[in-house]
Design a protein around this nucleic acid. Structure first.
Lengths: 364, 364
DNA sequence: CCTCATACTGTATGCGCATACATCCCCTTC
DNA sequence: GAAGGGGATGTATGCGCATACAGTATGAGG
């Protein structure tokens, strides 16, 4: 405790102190059953005495495996962070009784949940998880070299880079549809989920005037959801549009903007099927603000099943993605591939759940 | 791409192909300015050609630094996860039109935000973040050996273990009060925040019948918040209680239970000051369910400032902890210590913000 | 022309550990 | 009582890279 870290002890130090060879020290950690109890005790004592902690780098190098999984996240949208926060060490407190405006919830529960799932599953297999933000070659330098395999969200790493990395370690891509590459993929059934949602609105609520509010045009998830929407309409004998009515960028504030625009244009359809929850919540905000009633005047639905969809008024009817399971399945897939590199490319699809709540007129 | 990963290329392979020595290859990555352009080009070509990615383990070993920060989280409460999720590779979808009951939001935005802050700040300094769940000696084996320093939430790692680890790498503890140890600490001003909140209720709303709903008795955060509550009352000339009226476990469902109990006992005070948001939200649920009005009949306040506090009806008056900044400050402190191991133990306190919303009668 | 600084590049070594292989000891077996 | 076997431990080597140091080439200065 009051030690000034003179020098990190190594196996050699422990071996000397315990009066054994370094091989024995190593064995005490890796193959305890191959060491006699008496020897083990002496080594343990030396370890405690010296405060020895095995070097992960050396171990990884010698063992030819890192014992870690890499998780690569998209650049936190716009969250550059700026300079580090000021820290007052004198316990000063700033009381702001008039917050200028409530902060927008981060809403990235999606990532958090995926991360959590990854963490849980990796932990169960004795693997650590190393996280990195995709930005420039950081991944290349910081992540790829130190993990046994990598999990990434689709479109977060430039294809060139990913291909390069994939030559060394297996890569699993979460979300998005198979892009003709050779990676393993894990996704949710966007198409079926959205189709079910669409048909529910038509079947259960008798609405035939539906419009789709999409996300970024280059999002494969959005693409699939729109496709599900079209298939749903088609199945109900309704002519599907070739394009979404509007496109947002998946954020709530943008959703609000879209909502306002619709109201101002005076062309609000009976049902607005949104490509994700944030957009739907934003639209909800805008509609309610103008006095329109949901679901009486307009039905609004989302996709994802983030927490906020459950606490809104009215609560949002949506399609829940098993986000945590997504992370877990990705880890499983990765580990399977590590076990058998010759496996053909895998594609896993997780089932979704349609959650019917107030915003579509159910549970009214 | 269609490569079967014959063998991971090393500096030697690259050097051979480029017709240079391994030192030059290494330099191309570490000290590009010391290599002539022509040589660099040849090496780069070889790298691309072979799909070379430097081994993080070898680099860390040779450079004597891992280039990573460890983040140690408490065991996800009760989230064991069970077996991995089933994955259907045929695109099957399960539609559950009657969800048995909405799932309780995970609510662990706190951890997510801290993690995010850590990630952001680490990234700014070219560091990777490796996450691990505190459980048994996993940290010891998996984390401590592979990072340059460690950040942990208070009370998540057994003291013995932490002390052992701290002999090798610096440790920064988040939240909780300084425990007489020699680690660096980063926390928020629980006392001042709660005192300000308490005094606001008395001053602005003229309420003098306040009660405190606490969390686990062994939580240092809870302890400090109660202390702030008492100080607030004292400052207002009100005799403070020696114990919280009730104690929960910081979960929403438990908060609901506490709320019901209060109503049934018929002893609901004019204002309920809760030790965290989840508890407050649970109490809100219970009170509203019995027809009581908030804030007209009862004032309820929280602490933390999680997203859900902003979407509840009425919105929750609370004290916002700068969760993301907490993570960032922890990283900063860690890096500072790495730069100067002889620094005396640091204790940083981040300012909190009192957010006045409907549940206390403001913004009514 | 020779000296010497400058700009590159190569050689050799060690980082801390895992592990194949060799060694040694003690006990069993016929 | 010699041969053989299994358990416990030691010896030696390499994992892939960074880097101190030594070498080479080139051009400037005298």
């Amino acid at each position: 405790m009051e030690n000034l870290m003179p020098k990190t002890p190594t196996v050699y130090d422990v071996a000397d102190l315990a009066g054994v060879s370094i091989a024995t020290v190593s064995r005490v950690f890796r193959k305890p059953h191959k060491v006699s109890q008496a020897t083990k005790d002496r080594v343990d004592a030396a370890v405690l005495n010296l405060g020895y902690v095995p070097s992960g780098s050396a171990r990884s190098l010698a063992a030819r495996r890192a014992g870690a999984i890499g998780l690569c996240f998209p650049d936190f949208d716009g969250i550059d962070g700026g300079p580090a926060p000021v820290v007052y060490t004198d316990g000063r407190v700033i009381e702001q009784f008039d917050p200028p405006e409530d902060v927008e919830p981060s809403g990235d529960l999606y990532l958090s949940e995926v991360m959590l799932g990854t963490e849980i599953e990796a932990w169960r297999h004795g693997m650590a998880v190393t996280i990195a933000v995709a930005r420039g070659n950081e991944i290349f330098d910081n992540l790829a070299g130190r993990v046994d395999g990598m999990i990434t969200l689709s479109r977060t790493v430039p294809e060139r880079l990913l291909a390069h990395i994939a030559r060394n370690i297996p890569v699993v891509v979460i979300a998005g549809t198979r892009a003709g590459d050779d990676y393993d993929h894990i996704g949710t059934d966007n198409v079926a989920g959205m189709q079910a949602m669409t048909q529910h609105i038509v079947d259960a609520h008798g609405v035939r005037d539906l419009a789709f509010v999409g996300g970024p045009a280059d999002s494969p998830d959005d693409h699939d959801r729109f496709e599900g929407f079209r298939m749903g309409l088609q199945a109900e004998g309704i002519e599907p549009p070739s394009e979404p009515l509007l496109r947002g960028d998946f954020t709530r504030s943008h959703g609000r903007m879209l909502g306002r625009r619709l109201v101002e244009a005076g062309q609000v359809p009976r049902a607005l099927v949104c490509s994700n929850d944030q957009t739907a919540l934003g639209i909800l905000d805008a509609l309610l603000a103008t006095g329109l009633r949901v679901p009486e005047d307009v039905i609004v639905t989302g996709f994802d099943g983030i927490d906020a969809s459950q606490t809104s008024r009215p609560r949002l009817t949506t399609v829940r993605q098993p986000m945590r399971e997504l992370g877990r399945a990705a880890v499983d897939t990765l580990l399977r591939r590590l076990g058998d590199p010759l496996l053909p490319p895998q594609t896993g699809t997780l089932p979704v759940t349609v959650l019917l709540r107030e915003s579509c007129g159910c549970l009214a």
